[in-house]
Design a protein around this nucleic acid. Sequence first.
RNA 1: GCGCCCAUAGCUCAGCUGGAUAGAGCAACGGUUUUCUAAACCGUAGGUCUUAGGUUCGAAUCCUAAUGGGCGUACCA
Length: 610
Amino acid sequence: MQQIPYYRLNLQGSMPIKMTIENTIVQQIRRAVSVLYQTEIASDSIVIQETRKEFEGQVTAVTFPFTRFSKKTPEQTGTEIGEYLKDNVKEVEDFNVIKGFLNLSIADSYWVDELLTTIHSSSFGQFPSNGQKVMVEYSSPNTNKPLHLGHVRNNLLGFSVAEILSANGYEVIKVNLVNDRGIHICKSMLAWQMFGNGETPQSSQLKGDHLVGKYYVIFDKEYKKQIEALIDKGQTEDEAKKNAPIIKQAQEMLLKWEAGDQEVIKLWSMMNGWVYSGFEVTYKMLGVDFKKYYYESDTYLLGKDTIQEGLEKRVFFKKDDGSVWIDLTEDGLDQKLVLRADGTSVYITQDLGTAQLKYDDFKMDKSIYVVGNEQDYHFKVLFLILQKLGKTWAKGLFHLSYGMVDLPSGKMKSREGTVVDADELMDEMILTARDRTEELGKVEGFSEQEKKELYHMIGLGALKFFLLKVEPKKRLLFDPNESIDFQGHTGPFIQYTHARIRSVMAKADYQNKISTNYSTILTALEKDLIVNLAKYPDVIAASAKEFSPAHIANYVFELAKLFNKFYHEESILKAEDPDVRNFRLDLSAATASTINKGMKLLGIQVPDRM
RNA sequence: GCGCCCAUAGCUCAGCUGGAUAGAGCAACGGUUUUCUAAACCGUAGGUCUUAGGUUCGAAUCCUAAUGGGCGUACCA
């Protein structure tokens, strides 16, 4: 009987990749069904899953679908296919059938080989280049206030997705579209002019973004005061909101900015400069970066060409007042304004233009916008318009929509000061990490510098894992009164597991893989660990497909848990048989390396000691 | 009104394209250290997977509706 080749070419052609055991089994089951029941079935009609813990085996096939052809009970069918696989597939050592489930025991030699070759290779989990370019746009802050927890989620998601795509063979371009102009920054500017007395980051000892944010809040207080005063004088709330002098001044300031007024531009540049130096500190702390920054002050006038193009192509139409619209009612959406009657832009106008600009700059195959779910409708419209305009690249656009971070009291509002500030939160996390670590007495022999790095690693690790382990589209509840955990399903748990392994490796003076051909029977836990490690590339692929770091976070947690169990029950260094000892060292090293790789994709560092 | 998203243990969350007795962590209770780091490990307890129909050999998962929550539906960004 001819064996299906063990190696095949992947879709991109160049690099031969090893078939996973699941693939091998799917192909062999097709063959079995063909031989036993004279029926050709499609690969995707075969359901393969991991064997549940309570049963013998590692890979399970569901046999119900085959009973149509076998005309036998699920048990008989399973047994027949099991016999065939056992006789014809060298990796299949044994099988059992329970109800309609065919559980296959894969030979230890297969798993050993898997560990010592595939898993131990440094490129494990890194896919070869697929020749495609992808842009990830994230962060996108406003420059009138410091970053808060919601931005932190955005930044971590964006950074992580970029890392994940890179591991999947994409060339990744990270960009940040900064919203540096508009009424909001004018509010901060105006309040600073009125009440600031020339205060600067230096004179106030405040981080630039916090200083500017302070005046944003001051503006709002003053604005509210004026509204109340007008209401007392008999105006309605709506009238008062429009007529308050301070808001009118802010609007005037925006007009001046747009007219290029020297004074206003100077103030704007100065205050934005403060904000940028503040953001830089925050980004560095978070560990995120960008290849390119786009500024709305440069792009807000873009898009008018696109509007013209749309009119020519009759995708858009002009109303009598001169405003330009698109009718999306056939697509189940509404009519949408794309240019005001006075010829000025709206939000979507600039986004159309910016999308074109970004494409012209990089010619990427895919473009991911990491933006909160309150803009779902906007992006649906944006992408649809670009498609209607015949932009071939528009089908590569994707809105990675994520849920808001809510407090128990409800939504965070910068203006009202009910926000969890990013800088403060990170500082707190690091302090907590320090306290916890010192309590446990874990830093003997650490230099001050090492301690500092460790606390940062642990504090940020806890925060990042907390935010990334949840599926992006789900909203996230954060209770500032309940500190983020350091035990259980957390970043520090995984970091700790890594440190444990590294400690063992250090004791053994482990450098490189030491086992050659290992022939001893694997223990159940060893096998579990290898089976789990072998899944890593699939997890990387799946998380890229769904743009979800949460898969990786949960996978790495499982892996760490499994290792801790193994560590607890089976000695590594004290194993009597030197072969066993060496093999377990290799297994541990592979686990540490995979934890490290996975965590890196989340933007989380792992320490060697903690 | 219309549209989109969410609903799983007391709390925070997993559960992949339908598959075996729905899983973790936290909190609660009990246990494990002269042995490689106890930020660990083991155990107990905790569930009508919001509800009602439907499709299927089989539904937490797919379809329909209802209920509850969030968001959007701006000539704001």
